[in-house]
Write a protein that binds this DNA or RNA. Structure first.
Lengths: 214, 214
DNA sequence: ACCTGAACACCGTTCAAGT
DNA sequence: ACCTGAACACCGTTCAAGT
């Protein structure tokens, strides 16, 4: 808590990330971050420009936790593993996916983007498929995680309770949704959906390259 | 502006949506919404519970603008058209995609979800593919739009300028990104990326059904 | 160079008072 | 039933003063 080492940008970002992990990004306040570090608010402004810039820095700290992709293996396996690593990190910092598209990329994210593009380029998919594939893959990583977290948070802790309440109240009006909710509840194993959908995209990219080639 | 009809939940939501469209959701304030309607702040609380609930209502207003899917045609065509309609609406209200995963679904969104599930169910893909397909499709609609808007907003109005500045400064350090940025800048037509990636997903779902069917 | 007290212009929300 | 003045506990940020 109140460790009285001198303040620094890095210590501020770390404290802010921890706070957001624990209390959510909506509760994040310059004053709360300063409190956690046992300094007064205004001191923060000696090391970060303002709250927006601090949030950009926080996201880049998180992106820095994503392991760089493997240097060998089939491109699809490498891509799947790298996406899984990103997914794990974004699941650990539940506020981060929501910030992803709002913040300009910092140094860690630039390197991350570069690594994704490298995988796709070295797969020799052709420039057009690389271009579109990059957007498709990053969209999936961030979008899927965001959706997953959204489910958890809006349904709250008592997931089962909420779901069965929905089934009783509105199940008759929304038959297809009722069926879907039953799918969420049931003990049926849906496997790794994140990897499954990414697989569809990667296979599709592969196939559309073949079409272009031949 | 200051039309002095009596206040109502619906008028408040409409005014708030207009304000967010014009100035962004970060600038949205209870006081500003009240000002736009020529009432005082506190009056809003007679019609909406609080700011969070107002935002949920605003998102549901936006979802209500999405045309319901066609009742005939191949399931992929229907899905593509419905997704395009949603994409158009979310592009018109640039703040909405970012709220999507944060807000509990309102009545319009429940009907929207139901319509997506109906399309997939009637396509006879099998329960497992319907379950995963629903997540994949909604993820794509919201995630892709979010990413598109993020590009626009972080790059700002002077897109070309920013991009060529990046190319000169960091092009050497990030060769793959440099190539990608050139793709964004060039006059090469990339076609409808939104539809293209959704196509990969829909074809993949179709194919994985065939596999399951055996 | 870095920390901070005081201050400013704003927030969301409540509550009692009006009509 | 709906509107509102006053107030409360908070914000982000600036600036001049301290060391």
């Amino acid at each position: 808590m109140g460790s009285r080492q001198p303040l620094s940008r890095s210590r501020i970002l770390d404290a802010a990330v921890s706070f957001a992990d624990e209390h959510g990004v909506d509760a994040l306040t310059m004053r709360k971050v300063a409190d956690a570090l046992d300094f007064r608010v205004m001191s923060l402004y000696n090391h970060v420009a303002n709250k927006q810039e601090m949030l950009s820095g926080m996201l880049d700290v998180v992106v820095g936790e994503i392991d760089p992709p493997a240097t060998e293996g089939s491109w699809k396996d490498v891509m799947q593993a790298s996406a899984a690593a990103a997914h794990a990190v974004l699941s650990r910092h539940k506020w981060a996916a929501g910030e992803w598209s709002k913040r300009p990329p910092g140094p860690h994210r630039l390197r991350y983007i570069e690594s994704i593009l490298r995988i796709l380029t070295e797969a020799e998919l052709g420039p057009e498929v690389v271009y579109r594939g990059y957007h498709a893959v990053t969209m999936h990583i961030v979008g899927f995680t965001l959706q997953e977290i959204g489910y958890e948070e809006t349904l709250g802790d008592n997931l089962e309770e909420m779901a069965s309440a929905f089934l009783e109240e509105m199940g008759a009006d929304y038959p297809y949704m009722a069926e879907h909710v039953r799918g969420h509840l049931g003990d049926h194993d849906h496997g790794d959906e994140f990897a499954f959908v990414l697989g569809l995209i990667l296979d599709g990219l592969d196939r559309s390259t073949c079409k272009t080639r031949g």
